[in-house]
Write a protein that binds this DNA or RNA. Structure first.
Lengths: 198, 198
DNA sequence: GGCATTGTCGAACAGCGTTCGAAGGCGCCC
DNA sequence: GGGCGCCTTCGAACGCTGTTCGACAATGCC
């Protein structure tokens, strides 16, 4: 936008990385509606058609962005569940998950986009790898009895996805406090059948 | 396109109903990607610009479609929960919910579209009214102890939404049997902490 | 130095949602 | 009955989108 007179050779990264970074930036600052290829090209300081030498389509670019997002989330889950500051591995996992949903809502929506996931195996794989990291956190938790740990982890993952969907269905991305309290209290009840914390 | 020589006075319904019916038909038979205003106009046998006399935008039309969808789902939940064939009111509610998700997946996705819900209060209201019908089914269930019924209903609703999201994230709309079994077993465990049925 | 390969991009295309202005049908009032 | 005005309907156009194409520069190899 402001005239960038620097020669291209001094710019960081190739076109592929620049396009992905620009897309992530637009997604974070303006939202999915404004994420056009022209906007990406302009933000990245590259030509529109150049994108097609590295991505088969816009959907392919978004797919790469979403997979990158899962890589980051998986790392956060692994890191947070090992951090004793969160009280338990499972709570660390939850924090990583909802952190991502709250601080990068548009990317989070893209990552869990049903349309994109149904169409692309690599995205399903990335989600599954992230789930496995989360499952480890659940299985380390004392609240779930052994024979149910595997199935419960899957259901709690689904529960998290549903809660995230509800959150991002609100105009400002968050529920009224009273409803949010009920929702998390209900989730805590489902997980350990006592009014604990998630 | 095939010459429809019939005078408009013999057609059923006004433009608004015809457009909504055409949109629902395209959504059910071809999916959301092919749901263009031109396709709607052609299927409905009306002019493209006529749609704009009854809907402010394409999004407004989709909003009406989604609200209609919730009206139907709410009716189904109320009816199914009163049907003893489902074993319990809560199971009836689940059946109505997943029936809708499985038999009309594109409409279901539209109804629960985070983008649409975040932008339109009427859709949030329609979803809330549907949830209240579902909540009645949960509160009639014996498995949830009284003090948790209200919060648990909300969390189970979120769980249902998450499970539906997982289902429609699969290429053919359904999970491998083994995973589906684990998921439902996990959900059953969360609901009553014993390997019952959902 | 010449040539093939690769990378980059401006320009054009078809499709989309949307708008505009004109035309048709209809009732109402003088 | 004739003229007026409103409400519907729609063909044509606009700007935008994702995508493609062909030309041009850059790069590495012989």
């Amino acid at each position: 936008m402001t005239g960038n007179a620097r020669p291209a050779s001094l710019e960081v990264g190739g076109i592929k990385a620049k396009a992905l970074a620009a897309a992530a930036h637009i997604l974070a600052t303006q939202g999915a509606d404004d994420l056009s290829l022209r906007a990406i090209a302009e933000t990245a300081g590259i030509g529109l058609a150049s994108i097609y030498h590295y991505f088969a389509s816009k959907e392919d670019l978004l797919l790469n962005l979403a997979v990158e997002g899962f890589d980051g989330l998986r790392r956060d889950i692994l890191q947070f569940q090992a951090d004793p500051a969160f009280g338990s591995p499972m709570r660390g996992g939850h924090r990583a998950f909802f952190n991502c949903a709250e601080t990068r809502p548009a990317l989070f929506s893209l990552m869990f986009s049903e349309r994109l996931m149904a169409r692309h195996e690599p995205l399903r794989q990335a989600e599954h790898a992230t789930f496995l990291a989360y499952q480890a956190a659940v299985e380390a938790d004392v609240r779930i009895p052994e024979p149910h740990k595997e199935t419960a982890a899957l259901a709690i993952w689904a529960l998290g996805r549903g809660i995230a969907a509800i959150l991002s269905s609100q105009p400002d991305g968050k529920l009224p406090d009273e409803v949010a309290e009920k929702l998390f209290a209900g989730a805590a009840y489902l997980i350990d059948h006592s009014p604990g914390e998630t």
